[in-house]
């Protein structure tokens, strides 16, 4: 059992890392030929770092847009963030001190995720505009994440997994040793769902996570008059069309 799960996790993690990096490389290598920050925009690099920081931590734009979506979206993401940190207790030995402090609270974070996801799902069904734009995958994604959070919580409160064994398994993964894992259907489900999530990440809208950092409307500095901004393909236009444009000129 443990071996199969290990192999699945390695493979899907590989797809996640390689796929997402390739996507990010494509974003990075695609030129942004024009200055298009949504203004008012920061006039310095530092300002841009703060703008992106506020988007990542507080979901600033979403807050301006819709308080309910913001509330549910933020609850989910913040919950997920802390749950992930709390999971480090399976991967560190001895457990890092701040992880040890966080760990007991992880059920609360799990519930934050669930409440957030449920709210987002309800919006998808109830608000006619959001229903109109939702594809099956948009509902599925939420259900999927709820299943991950739900199975995690279930093990916490009901069908307890063997924590000591899980930890050995997790440390085994890090050391490339295949540790055994006794059959606990909820745990297996939890791990497999995570594997699927990692697998679809680079091919789905989950790309919004790296996408934000490459979004020209958010990451560009507002300084077009001070500094000439020009993409390589646009530059090449200048050299070979200079004959053409001087033909236009009446000087």
């Amino acid at each position: 059992m443990g071996t199969v799960i290990s192999v699945v996790l390695y493979l899907t993690l590989g797809v996640f890392v390689v796929g997402t990096l390739r996507r990010m490389m494509r974003y990075a290598s695609t030129p942004a030929p024009l200055k298009i920050p949504t203004t008012p925009a920061p006039t310095t690099r530092t300002g841009v770092v703060f703008r992106l920081g506020r988007e990542v931590v507080f979901f600033e734009s979403l807050f301006k847009a819709s308080k309910w979506t913001w509330l549910f979206g933020w609850l989910f993401h913040a919950g997920l963030f802390f749950v992930l940190l709390a999971h480090l207790r399976y991967f560190t030995e001895p457990v890092w001190w701040w992880v040890a402090i966080l760990a007991p609270f992880s059920p609360y974070f799990g519930f934050m995720m669930l409440i957030g996801l449920a709210g987002l799902l309800a919006r998808r069904f109830l608000v006619d505009r959001v229903r109109y734009i939702s594809a099956p995958s948009d509902y599925l994604m939420l259900v999927f994440l709820m299943a991950i959070a739900g199975s995690g919580l279930l093990m916490r409160f009901e069908l307890h997994a063997d924590i000591v064994q899980v930890k050995q398994f997790a440390l085994g993964l890090l050391a490339f040793e295949f540790a055994g894992l006794s059959f606990n259907p909820v745990l297996i489900l939890h791990l497999l769902l995570v594997a699927v999530l990692m697998f679809i990440f680079p091919f789905s809208k989950l790309l919004h996570a790296p996408g934000l950092f490459f979004s020209p409307s958010r990451n560009q500095v507002d300084n077009p008059r001070e500094r000439r901004h020009i993409a390589r393909w646009a530059k090449s236009l200048e050299s070979h069309s200079s004959g053409k444009s001087s033909g236009n000129s009446r000087g």
């Binding site: 695609t30 030129p31 942004a32 298009i36 959001v130 809208k205 919004h208 979004s215």
Partner: peptide, 24 residues
């Protein structure tokens, strides 16, 4: 165009259908 304009490429990939823009 997705190879020429980073904005377009990122925008086409990143929408999560949150609906925040629907009434704007």
């Amino acid at each position: 165009l997705t190879g020429k304009y980073r904005g377009l490429q990122v925008y086409l990939d990143s929408c999560v259908k949150c609906g925040a823009c629907t009434d704007k």
